[in-house]
Simulated assay, not measured.
Amino acid sequence: MIIDIREAYRRALDDFGALVHRIAPEQWENATPCVDWDVHALVNHVVGESLWVPELLAGRTVAELGDTYDGDLLGDDPRKAFDAAASAAVHAASAEGSLTCVTHLSFGDVPGEEYITELFADALIHTWDLARAIGADDRLDPELVETCADWFAGAEDGYRQAGVIGEQQPLPPDPDPQTRLLASWGRRT
């Protein structure tokens, strides 16, 4: 069953946020499956993406925003920073017209639905990354995995050509849907 992409995005951010609230003080420097990112950098990335959402869905351009969301966005309370950014992103993505608006991304203009789908997929995959980094249960919501896999089957080649995902990883015999999805994103399970 494929769910509404706005609901999928909200649920993926909720799952990521639940893990953010479990990060122990000594875990912020833990390595993640994302090359060159520790836990702090990974959470900062998701916060940064979330801060862009209301702006881009409102029609602003990357050029207009410039470096507004560069640097450390977590401050002295990373959990609060995440919660505020995620709440604003979900609110903007759920607003009337969010699926049909034109979003001006760095690589071109896309419908809001495509942008929200990309955000959802990124949040879902990074939920697994964060879980692995802090030693939490890394099983993703099967319904979200299915939704992401259905979309990513048509987007994978473009992502790989753009260099924003790693190489396809080898699969074990008879992989489950989550393992298959993660391998397509370049993750070794």
Rank of each mutant, 00 (worst) to 15 (best):
R79G: 15
D176P: 04
T147C: 13
D122Q: 12
P25Q: 03
S106L: 10
A24W: 01
S94R: 07
F16V: 04
L13D: 00
T147K: 10
L144D: 06
D14H: 09
A89H: 00
Q168C: 10
A149V: 02
L130M: 10
V90F: 05
W185D: 01
P172T: 11
D77W: 02
G75T: 10
L73D: 02
A155Q: 15
W37T: 03
D138M: 07
A121L: 08
A155G: 10
D129W: 06
V39E: 00
L181G: 06
P33M: 08
C148L: 07
T100M: 09
E55P: 02
A58D: 14
P142V: 08
W52D: 01
S98E: 04
T68A: 15
D4M: 12
L144G: 04
S98K: 00
E64R: 04
Y9G: 01
V164H: 10
A31H: 09
A86I: 04
E55K: 13
P170W: 06
T68W: 04
I116N: 05
E49P: 00
A24S: 10
E26K: 14
L57V: 10
G163R: 06
H104P: 03
W151T: 03
A155S: 13
D72P: 05
L56F: 14
T103H: 01
V102M: 11
R60E: 14
N44Q: 07
W185K: 01
A133S: 11
I23M: 05
P25E: 09
D150W: 15
F82D: 01
L171D: 10
Y115G: 02
E55A: 13
A95L: 13
E96N: 13
